[in-house]
Design a protein around this nucleic acid. Structure first.
Length: 470
RNA sequence: GGAGGCAUAGCCAAGUGGUAAGGCCAAGGUCUGCAAAACCUUUAUCCACCGGUUCGAAUCCGGUUGCCUCCUCCA
C-alpha cells in the first residue's frame, strides 16, 4: 500500500505523513470569525479539511479534529454595534448559520468546536507564560509578543524578518517596541465587551486563541494544522511564534493551506465585497454540487467560481447518481452467482487506485476520476441481459465506500419534502403500463409528462420502469 | 521592494522525465412506440513563448510574457 504524502507549507515539499503517535492523528483547523454568513470561499477549507479528516479515518487513523469559533473580535464588536445585539448574540446567531451551511455541504462536526470566550483562563495563562519567559511585554493595557525574541519567525511563510520590516504596510502603533510585534491582549475601549486580566479589562488578540486552544485539546505538538492560504501569514506564523516560545516544541508537524476561490480571477473576500454566500447558493443549486465543484480540483490550486461551473458539477454528479440508481434498479432482477476472480480483481484495482490518488496529497480530482471509471465499468456491465447480484452489490458498496470518503451519498433523491407519494407514483406507472400495452401512447405520454411536472422522471428499461425524483 | 503560485482541448481539470486521465458541452451511430438512461465512435501530433539539459520534457534548468496571492482584517 502506498504512503500518505502531504504538502507541508513549512518545508515547501510533499512529505510522508508520519503521525506523532502511531495510529493517531491530531488536527486543528482555523474556523470562522462568526460575524457574518459564510461565502463559498469560507466553505472551501470546511470541505477540504473535512475530506482530509474523512480520508485519514478511512485509512485507519483515529483522528481528533478540532475547529474553533472566533466569537469575539473587532468585527463582532462592530457588527453588534450596528445591529444592536450583544457580541454573544451576534456570535450565537452566526455560529448557528455556519453550522447550517456547513452541514448542508456535507461537513461532519469536529470533535470539539472550542470558542474563544470559553477559554479566557487558558488564554490569560498562556500570555502570562510568554511574559515570564521574556517573549511578551505589557504596554498601556495591551500585551504584545516580542517578535525579535523568536529567531525562527518567518519560517512558515518563508519571509525574512528584515524583508517584513521593509514592507510598507505595517501598522503603526506607539505602544509597540517593534512594528512586527503583535498583540496578545487588547485593552477594552469604554463600552466594549471585556474580560478581567492581570493587565486590566480587555480581550484576546486574534492569534493567541488558536495557540491556547490547540494546546489544551491537542497538546504541545500535534500532527496537522490547516487553514486558508491567506492565514499562513501572519496568523499561523504568529501562532507558531507564541506556541513554540511557550512550550519549546514544534507546534504542528504538517501545515496545510488551501487555495482560494476566485471570482473573475480575483480573490473572493468579505472585504472586497465580491462574495457569494453559501446560504444563497444553496437555494439555487444542490449543496452536493458545490461540494463536488470544490473537490474537482486540487485543494491547493485556486478555483474560479461561476454558475456555469456549478452547473457542470451538477451534470457531472448526475452521471454518478444515474449509475448508482441503475445498479440499484437492476439488483431487483439480478441473478445468483459468485463473482469471478477477474471481477474481484477489477474492483480491487479501483480501490487501490483511489487510495493511491488520495494518498498523493489528497488528490480528490483523481479520486473522482476513479468514480467515473467505475461508472463506465458498471454501465457496461449493465448492458448485459443478466447480471449477478453479488457483482452489483460489490459495486454499490464501493460507491458507498468512496462516497463516504468524499462526503457524498450517490443515487438518492435529496430531501425536498415535495412531490407525490411513492404510492401515487406507482399507481400512475401501472396505469401508464396498461396504456402502453394497449398501444395508447398518447395517454402513456400524457402520464409521463404529468409525472415529469411533479418532478418524477420515468425511464423504461427491459427490466421494467425505473423512476426517480428529480 | 521581498516571498510564493499559476498558464494543458469550446468549458473545467489531472498528470510533474518515457511519449496527453477524467468530467461537462457538441456531433454521428445503437437501443426505444417516442423518450430517458446507457453503450459505441469522433473532438489537443500537442501542454503560454524562447532557448538549454537529456536517448527522451507538458514535466528538469535559464529567460520572456500574462495573470493571481501574501507581506494589513481576510478561508
Amino acid at each position: 500500500m502506498s504512503k500518505i504524502r502531504i504538502y507541508n507549507t513549512l518545508s515547501g515539499k510533499k512529505e510522508e505523513l508520519i503521525p506523532l503517535e502511531p495510529g493517531k492523528i491530531k488536527m486543528y483547523v482555523c474556523g470562522p470569525t462568526v460575524y457574518n454568513y459564510i461565502h463559498i470561499g469560507n466553505g472551501r477549507p470546511a470541505i477540504i479539511f473535512d475530506v482530509v479528516r474523512r480520508y485519514l479515518t478511512y485509512r485507519g487513523y483515529d483522528v481528533t479534529y478540532i475547529q474553533n469559533f472566533t466569537d469575539v473580535d473587532d468585527k463582532l464588536i462592530k457588527k453588534a454595534a450596528e445591529t444592536g445585539e450583544t457580541v454573544p448574540e451576534v456570535a450565537q446567531r452566526f455560529i448557528k448559520a455556519y453550522e447550517e451551511d456547513v452541514r448542508a455541504l456535507g461537513v461532519l462536526q469536529a470533535n470539539v468546536h472550542p470558542k474563544v470566550t470559553d477559554h479566557m483562563p487558558e488564554i490569560i495563562a498562556f500570555i502570562e507564560g510568554l511574559i515570564e519567559k521574556g517573549h511578551a511585554y505589557a504596554a498601556g493595557g495591551d500585551v504584545y509578543f516580542r517578535t525579535a525574541s523568536f529567531p525562527e519567525y518567518g519560517k512558515l511563510s518563508h519571509q525574512h524578518i528584515a524583508d517584513l520590516k521593509a514592507g510598507a504596510r505595517i501598522e503603526v502603533n506607539e505602544k509597540k517596541d517593534d512594528p512586527l510585534d503583535f498583540v496578545l491582549w487588547k485593552q477594552a475601549k469604554p463600552g466594549e465587551i471585556f474580560w478581567e486580566s492581570p493587565w486590566g479589562k480587555g480581550r484576546p488578540g486574534w492569534h493567541i486563541e488558536c495557540s491556547a486552544m490547540s494546546l489544551k485539546y491537542l497538546g504541545e505538538t500535534f500532527d496537522i494544522h490547516g487553514g486558508g492560504h491567506d492565514l499562513a501569514f501572519p496568523h499561523h506564523e504568529n501562532e507558531i511564534a507564541q506556541s513554540e516560545c511557550l512550550t519549546g516544541h514544534p507546534m504542528a508537524r504538517y501545515w496545510m493551506h488551501n487555495g482560494y476561490i476566485n471570482i473573475d480571477n480575483e480573490k473572493m473576500s468579505k472585504s472586497l465585497g465580491n462574495f457569494v454566500l453559501v446560504k444563497e447558493l444553496r437555494d439555487e443549486y444542490s449543496p452536493r454540487a458545490l461540494r463536488f465543484f470544490m473537490l474537482s480540483a486540487h485543494y491547493r490550486n485556486p478555483i474560479n467560481f461561476s454558475k456555469e461551473l456549478i452547473q457542470q458539477a451538477v451534470n457531472s454528479i448526475t452521471r454518478i447518481d444515474n449509475a448508482v440508481r441503475n445498479l440499484k434498479h437492476r439488483k431487483e432482477t439480478a441473478v445468483d452467482g459468485e463473482m469471478t476472480a477477474e471481477e474481484r480483481q477489477i474492483l480491487e484495482r479501483f480501490r487501490q487506485t483511489f487510495i493511491e490518488e488520495m494518498d498523493n496529497d489528497f488528490n480528490t480530482a483523481d479520486g473522482i476520476t476513479v468514480l467515473f471509471d467505475m461508472v463506465r465499468e458498471t454501465n457496461q456491465i449493465l448492458t448485459a441481459p443478466a447480471v449477478k447480484r453479488s457483482l452489483i452489490q460489490a459495486y454499490l458498496s464501493l460507491f458507498d465506500e468512496f462516497g463516504g470518503v468524499l462526503g457524498f451519498t450517490f443515487g438518492e433523491a435529496e430531501e425536498n419534502g415535495r412531490g407525490p407519494s411513492d404510492e401515487d407514483v406507482e399507481k400512475l406507472i401501472v396505469e401508464r403500463g396498461e396504456a402502453r400495452k394497449n398501444r395508447n401512447f398518447a395517454r402513456a405520454d400524457e402520464i409521463r409528462d404529468q409525472l415529469q411536472q411533479m418532478g418524477i422522471v420515468l425511464e423504461d428499461t427491459p427490466q421494467g420502469v425505473r423512476w426517480h425524483r428529480k
